[in-house]
Design a binder for these strands. Structure first.
Lengths: 202, 202
DNA sequence: CGTCGTTACTTAACGCCGTTAACAAGACCA
DNA sequence: TGGTCTTGTTAACGGCGTTAAGTAACGACG
């Protein structure tokens, strides 16, 4: 069992090491050569497992999307009956993920479109499953008459945009330092819910 | 009068050329050497006018902030009496600026924090003046009883985050292609207003 | 046993990058 | 006239992503 690192193991090692370096040193500091040095191989070895640097990051993005989806599903499962409470939990889960995994979040959502050119379309579609969870809550809410939306697809993206804006501004430290993170988050969620639930009085 | 390009002129030429290259080729394609080639000087000449690449971009950021502020001020002046209409116009102006100047917007708000480390604090403060225009509308609205906000500073950032999220997702082409830009924008503005103006029925 | 192809990995190199050091030519001024 | 400041240059450093070429170990097969 305790054989030498096999091919698949090395791929796994590259991914794990890259993720750790990403969290510790940040995206800007990451290079193929540094990853290679960290795992004790030459830089060109990485190219045996990933077509190029973008492909390596795409694999990490996919993992990040899966993690996010898992957290959203968990929030969803906690409020099966109440779409408003569910939407609120989803908003909290999204923001929480973004703030707790800033480096993950950066490559997942801030990586420049130029790096995404080679990103396969089917993975883009899988990433959209995260939004489906939010839209499902919206649809439930509309059907139960507690939410209003002329187009749930559009409203879902609007909600996503609001959450993404808050996360990315906070992570980039662009928000007025006199504002506590939790206040901005709480108010963002409140705004978001108020935007969908006309009857809400909070 | 038609002398050789003076020192200040070359600085201006560098800034203008960089801005044009930025719009034409994008941020990722930009290098000191390419800028130098475009203006017909050696790369090291740029360092006579800007401490480094970041400083050059900081100067562009400042110009962009001034342009954005001018557009916001214009929207503000168009609705002196009605804070709700003013806030709506401000939201539209912000989004419009972001979508019409994607490369400007990128360096202004998407440039990685690492590049901003040397960004002087006073310029950060000047950048915040853009938000002051929004907050002024909020304060007016609250005073007139047509808006509600427990903390206008927090609410201002929440609004900003929602607008920024929409702009950056649209510019990054991350929004579902079946959603028209103008629909997302309209719904974002509507959500934003509904979040602040409890009496609004639209 | 020997050879052959495959796999896993290396070193060397290419052409970029931001940035610095060293130097040259003209302007200005004592 | 001579010295210094300004404005520009070329050459170089170390780093980057990536590719080309080579090597060493290994399993299969005659």
């Amino acid at each position: 069992m305790a054989e030498r690192t096999s091919s698949a193991d090395l791929r796994r090692l590259i991914l794990d090491t890259t993720r750790h370096l990403l969290v510790e040193k940040g995206y800007a500091d990451l290079s193929m050569r540094k990853i290679a040095k960290a795992i004790g191989y030459s830089a060109t070895s990485i190219y045996l497992h990933f077509e190029n640097k973008d492909a390596l990051f795409h694999a990490l993005i996919e993992e990040g999307m899966e993690r996010l989806l898992a957290e959203l599903k968990q929030a969803e499962a906690a409020h099966p009956g109440d779409p408003v409470a569910r939407l609120e939990a989803l908003c909290q889960a999204y923001v929480h993920f973004g703030l707790e995994n800033p480096e993950y979040y950066e490559i997942m959502l801030l990586l420049h479109p130029a790096h995404m050119a080679r990103y396969p379309a089917d993975k883009f579609r899988r990433a959209r499953r995260n939004l489906d969870v939010i839209e499902a809550a919206l649809i439930d809410g509309v059907n139960q008459g507690v939410m209003q939306a002329t187009n749930t697809r559009v409203s879902t993206s609007v909600i996503w945009a609001a959450l993404h804006g808050a996360v990315s501004l906070l992570n980039a430290k662009r928000v007025d330092i006199r504002i506590a993170h939790k206040d901005l988050i709480a108010e963002t969620v409140r705004h978001t819910l108020r935007g969908c639930c006309p009857s809400l009085e909070r």
